[in-house]
């Protein structure tokens, strides 16, 4: 798809005609960005890997991630949502240097 993950990727028949759309591209469905799997924007970039054995649960990664990709359970980081992670690397940078639990690996290594 040429629209870079922007598209709903739905066939025409499933999309509403103009009369049924809200004016001015207003959206009244809060929180629907979870349905747009923008993780492949990482493309050939880098993927953050989290080593939970090294992690001290400071939550710097969780609060710094612009895409809210750090999955919490009982107040603890348990993993990364790769469906939405765009590979910006902020988490790895924010992870305290003494801990260094997040490393960025070339996407090519996972193919």
């Amino acid at each position: 798809m040429s629209s870079g993950g922007f598209s709903t990727e739905k066939p025409d028949a499933e999309l509403p005609p103009w009369q049924e759309m809200l004016p001015g591209s207003v959206l009244d469905q809060a929180g629907n960005s979870v349905h747009r799997k923008t993780g492949f924007w990482r493309g050939g970039g880098r993927r953050p890997l989290l080593d939970l054995k090294l992690c001290v649960q400071c939550l710097h990664c969780w609060i710094s991630c612009p895409d809210a990709c750090f999955i919490l359970s009982d107040g603890k980081v348990i993993g990364i949502d790769y469906d939405h992670c765009k590979g910006c690397g902020i988490c790895s940078r924010e992870c305290p240097p003494m801990v260094n639990a997040i490393v960025l690996i070339d996407e090519g290594r996972f193919r």
Binding site: T8, D12, W18, G24
Partner: peptide, 22 residues
Amino acid sequence: PVSYGLGDPPEFYMEHKMRQQA
């Protein structure tokens, strides 16, 4: 809650222009 100024992919942009035209 509503959002304004969202990205409008190719499969919606023309329909939104038609709303303006209407």
